[in-house]
Structure formats: structure tokens, C-alpha cells
């Protein structure tokens, strides 16, 4: 240990030594030999523990949602019928209660189709707006002096660390009829009576853009920051105007950042619940809100499950695409 170590470093060192010693303790040694005897190395254990956790708490739940989406609702606890039912004593009496009715219901009742279409539309418009605000911001940060970049970036991330719920709540005070924005506009004389902004689609867009802006800025910044600036210099030397150089060089090169940022905003925005519930209209047709109402208010678990599966199917393509982009980037870094 260094003599000039701070107390924090000394503590960290002590913890590490203790942890290191722990591995050598008899119970740990015993566990290791037991595992080794069964052909399981520490390596397998490292893989197995998170693997089992995710299988049990991430993958199996989806199977259950899928199962319940095919069962029939009943007034009981839990409020759905089992898929397999024993009608009599013999094995042949198993009744399979597969009920595609929940899905038919989703298609027949135009409410759900409209909700899906509306959610995609709201998410797409908000993503575009977030891109239009986030791109200039990320660009300006990436082209700032290196001394400032770290601080500016921290300022973008800082709101993300404060409560999401409270940041959405802040907009209620700004947008409501006698809120800050209306008062400002009245005072400036732009309007002569308050405009209704809260509980409109506009407020939903604004909330989504505001809450997810850091997710748009981060990948864009990461991309713009490592861009080769000599390309722009060469373009300028050849007489290219800055705007054309931006459209012809910077924009196409930043496409991976744009895609990653848009995915990070679009995918969660489609299923968003909190923002439409607090800022949107009372009859807001957002699919996340419909699922919530179906589950908590109507207590129709099978229909809620069918909505969840449909939403998942809708998002599977963008999610898989996003993961492949992520994987490729991780591969490049390695």
C-alpha cells in the first residue's frame, strides 16, 4: 500500500484484501472442489448465476404472459382460467382452453387498433422533435473546447439522475391554465386569454421529448465527438460551404448515432405510461395507458396480456435492430 494513500483508497484496499482472502477460506474452497467434482468450474458458475436469474425473471414471465393471453377471464383470484383443465377422472378428459378471443377482441374493438396507431404516431413525432433539439445540442457540445466538453456533457446527464416522475411533474406547473407559460405569454401580450396546454397531445409530446432528451444526446455526442474533422477541413479547402459540408459529410457519418438515439427514445416512448397519464388528455389513446387501465381498473388480465404481447410484437423489430447495432458497436470497441 502506498504511504500517501487517502483513507478511501486504504479502505478500498482493505476490502479487496478481505475479499481476496474470502476466496481462500475453507467453505469457499470446499464449494470450489464440490463444483469441480461435478465438472462445473468457476467459469460456469459465473455464467450460470446471471443466466438463471434472467431466465427465471425475464424469459419465463414472458411465457406466462403469452399463456395467459390465450386464457379466458373469470371472476376469481387469479382472474383467468387455466389453460389445461381436468374435466373428468381420466387422462383423456383434459380440456385445452386455448382461447384466441382476446386477440380477436383487440382486432374487433377499434379502440385498440387506434391506440396502437396513435402510440406509434406520438412516439414517432416525439422522437423527431427530440432529434431536432438533441442533434444541435450534441453537435455544439462535441465541437466545443475540450475543457468544456466534460462539464457540458455532465449538465446533459444531470437531469437524468434526478427523478423522472418529478421532472414530468414540473411541466404541470408550467403548462396548466394559470401556469408559468400562460402567465408569461399573457404578460408579453402574445395572447389575451390562457391557452389550454395541459392535458393535450402537445403536452405529451413535450413531456416525452423532455424526459428522453439525454438518451438522444448521448449516442449522438459519442458519434460526433470521434468524427474525423480533417474531412471537413478538406471540404472547406476545396471550396465547400459549411452547410453543404454538414449535409454532405457530417450528417451521413453521424447516421449510426442518429439511429441509436432515435431507438432509445422511440421504443420506450411507444409504451410510455407516466407521461400521458400526467400530461396527456384524460382519454389519451396511448397503449401503455390502455394496458394499465385494462389491468388495474377492468381487472381483465387476459386482455392486458394480449395487449402486452401485441405491443411486444410491434416493438420486436426495432428492439432486435437496436441490439444488433449495439452489438456491432461493442464489437468495434473490443
Amino acid at each position: 500500500m502506498k504511504a500517501d494513500a487517502t483513507p478511501g483508497e486504504r479502505l478500498a484496499g482493505a476490502v479487496r484484501t478481505q475479499l481476496g482472502a474470502l476466496v481462500g477460506l475453507p467453505p469457499c474452497r470446499w464449494a470450489r472442489t464440490q463444483l469441480a467434482r461435478r465438472g462445473l468450474s468457476g467459469r460456469t458458475a459465473v455464467i450460470a448465476v446471471p443466466y438463471l436469474w434472467l431466465l427465471l425473471f425475464f424469459l419465463v414471465p414472458f411465457a406466462i404472459v403469452l399463456k395467459i393471453s390465450f386464457s379466458e377471464a373469470q371472476i376469481a383470484m387469479p382472474p383467468y382460467q387455466p389453460l389445461l383443465q381436468w374435466a373428468g377422472d381420466r387422462l383423456a378428459d383434459i380440456r385445452l382452453n386455448v382461447n384466441p378471443g382476446n386477440y380477436l377482441y383487440l382486432v374487433e374493438d377499434s379502440l385498440y387498433l387506434r391506440a396502437f396507431a396513435n402510440s406509434v404516431q406520438v412516439a414517432a413525432i416525439s422522437t423527431l422533435a427530440a432529434l431536432l433539439i438533441g442533434y444541435p445540442l450534441a453537435y455544439a457540445i462535441a465541437r466545443s473546447d475540450t475543457r468544456w466538453r466534460g462539464i457540458l456533457l455532465m449538465l446533459v446527464i444531470l437531469p437524468f439522475w434526478t427523478s423522472f416522475l418529478l421532472r414530468v411533474y414540473a411541466w404541470i406547473g408550467i403548462l396548466k391554465n394559470n401556469g408559468l407559460l400562460n402567465n408569461l405569454l399573457l404578460w408579453l401580450g402574445v395572447i389575451d386569454r390562457p391557452i389550454v396546454m395541459l392535458q393535450t397531445d402537445f403536452a405529451t409530446y413535450l413531456g416525452i421529448v423532455y424526459a428522453y432528451l439525454p438518451f438522444m444526446v448521448m449516442p449522438l455526442y459519442a458519434n460526433l465527438e470521434k468524427m474525423d474533422l480533417t474531412l471537413l477541413e478538406a471540404a472547406a479547402d476545396l471550396g465547400c460551404r459549411p452547410l453543404r459540408a454538414f449535409i454532405g459529410i457530417t450528417l451521413p457519418l453521424s447516421l449510426p448515432g442518429i439511429v441509436a438515439g432515435c431507438m432509445l427514445v422511440f421504443i420506450p416512448a411507444v409504451g410510455e405510461y407516466v407521461i400521458p397519464a400526467l400530461l396527456g388528455p384524460a382519454d389519451s389513446l396511448m397503449i401503455g395507458k390502455i394496458l394499465w387501465t385494462e389491468f388495474f381498473n377492468n381487472r381483465d388480465w387476459p386482455v392486458a396480456s394480449a395487449v402486452a404481447i401485441a405491443l411486444l410484437l410491434l416493438l420486436v423489430a426495432p428492439i432486435v435492430y437496436f441490439q444488433r447495432v449495439q452489438g456491432r458497436q461493442a464489437g468495434e470497441r473490443a
Binding site: F57, P61, F62, I64, V65, I68, M263, L264, I267, P268, V270, G271, E272, Y273, G288, L291, W292, F295, W301, A304, S305, A308, L311, L312, L315, I319, F322
Partner: peptide, 13 residues
């Protein structure tokens, strides 16, 4: 990226 409503519902079930 999974919408929270799906994760929540599936874990509850």
C-alpha cells in the same frame, strides 16, 4: 428498452 408496462405485467404474472 423494454416498455416498463410489459416488464411489470410479466413479473407480476
Amino acid at each position: 428498452v423494454m416498455p416498463e408496462v410489459i416488464t411489470g405485467l410479466s413479473l407480476l404474472l
